[in-house]
Amino acid sequence: MNVVNRGFLGRRDPERVELPPGQYLTRDFPVLQAGPTPSVPLDQWRFTVRAETGAEWAWTWPQLLALPRERPTVDIHCVTRWSKLATTWEGVSLDTLFAEVETVADYALVRSHGGYTTNLPLADLLDGQAWIAFGYDGEELAPAHGGPARLLVPHLYFWKSAKWVSGIDLHHDDEPGFWESLGYHEYGDPWREQRYTDD
């Protein structure tokens, strides 16, 4: 059945920017999270990668900041339908961190302070596609947006870019994270509009 809403005209984007299907442009930076903002003291901050073998690699805050930095400018797409274009970040590429890590695992489960998790294939974190970001728009990353540091993996819906990131567990099998257990898509490609489990 075709529903037509007479009297609904819609507001076409005058700039005709190409967005993923079902997204609209925002200039705001909406904040979405499931609970309180955790506070993470920098002297206790660690980023830990745990391989499928049990081996661990960990970085303290000063060790992270001592690594080579990148300044990606990327578009971000939230599953709640806003997209924000040309956002500027500062952080360390996951390629830099994973240069030390020995693994043959295919999947990553990302962990955050506060208990949040999200899953994605390890391949999506490598090859210049993902960063541990601690700067946004020329400033320190604000706690509301995931500071001191968050994952940035902008080619997937933004719930995959875990705020307050604390580490990554590597697994042979894909294990659903927080939203992925609540009906959201395992992979979450905005250009294929993979919002919910069976999309």
């Binding site: 925002t26 705001d28 930076f29 909406p30 904040v31 499931a34 609970g35 955790p38």
Partner: peptide
């Protein structure tokens, strides 16, 4: 967002456990 942040700050200060608090917010920061 501003309202939710303010309310959660008051709740945590009053001694509520962060794990008991669920939030949904709209608008930017």
């Amino acid at each position: 967002t501003g309202f939710v942040d303010a309310a959660i700050a008051l709740l945590l200060a009053a001694g509520h456990d962060a794990a008991d608090i669920r939030s949904e917010r709209f608008g930017g920061q």
